[in-house]
Design a protein around this nucleic acid. Structure first.
Lengths: 156, 156
DNA sequence: GTAGAACCTCAACCAAAGTTGAGGTCAAGC
DNA sequence: GCTTGACCTCAACTTTGGTTGAGGTTCTAC
């Protein structure tokens, strides 16, 4: 409360330290995000980063997307599709949110299916049974043709 | 179908290649799991791995746990608590499943909360607002004391 | 009795998402 | 005008969950 205010830069720009403090991400992470193309900065004459106020929203969006389980590379790709010249509008952000909500739905659905299957298995101890859908997709499902699967797609 | 059957080893033991084929994980992954203490093998006189049949269930359990998002180290710890001498019973596995089901519930719950918040935000574009719970935990929530949080705990 | 498949170990490499540290610069207060 | 904190770059390191490759051995089948 009695601490001196943060320095106010021309145009309301924020230093990297301020962005770190206010967004809750480390300075090194902001550097890292910049290297990955997730954020950009202007530089002072002395080569220090300055961010427009919109950076806080952008970082917040990145963190939300990360919490949904989306990898940074995908977040970067999505952010890259935002309008280039002007600041993004509420609708721009909302469109991103809708897309990510769909991915989140997908993840929740898959985890829920897994949970339900696990429930079934708890009752019967069926991880020991050949027929258990959780047990062994290659052994059981693979031999039943290429139809829809109960499980998450395999990583490979 | 016309392929020769897999070799049958004494006691129904399985070679690493068979386990890989039947469980859907790579041979290198089985080596890796063994190095991490998730599975064990007996060795032939020629130093080749042989697994008891129960290995397929064990690997299946590992994969299920991984799908719920549990890291290998935790899976290893959980498996280490299984009875040492005898083969695990259905109830042993069911106990594991119950524990992991609880973790899965937790993950689903957090993702669902996140989704609901995202829903709210889609309507109002509120990632731009100071008050948005998704936006900036440090800026908003942190200043409200150490009470329960709406969001997932921060990684750091 | 030998070809070739399957196996062995060990080390190096990969990707993601950062963190840490060295060595040096910038900026603000006294 | 100097000290101190904030900042800069770049390289190396971390963890998780593996994969890849080199160089060598074992097994199975003809």
């Amino acid at each position: 409360m009695s601490k001196p205010d943060e320095p106010v830069f021309p145009g309301g720009a924020l230093s990297v330290g301020e962005v770190a403090r206010r967004s809750g991400v480390a300075v090194s992470t902001l550097h890292f995000y910049e290297a990955k193309g997730l954020i950009r900065s202007l530089r002072t004459e002395g080569n220090q980063r300055r961010y427009p106020r919109g950076i806080l929203r952008r970082v917040a969006v990145i963190k939300v997307a990360q919490r949904t389980g989306i990898p940074l590379a995908s977040i970067q790709a999505a952010l890259a599709r935002l309008p280039d010249g002007r600041a993004p509008t509420a609708e721009d952000w909302a469109a991103l949110s809708r897309a990510w909500r769909a991915e989140l739905d997908e993840r929740i659905l898959r985890l829920t299916q897994l949970r339900d299957q696990l429930d079934d298995c708890i009752g019967c101890g069926c991880l020991s049974l050949k027929a258990c859908p959780l047990r062994n997709p290659r052994d059981v499902l693979a031999s039943q043709g290429a139809g829809p699967r109960l499980l998450e797609p395999e990583a490979g």
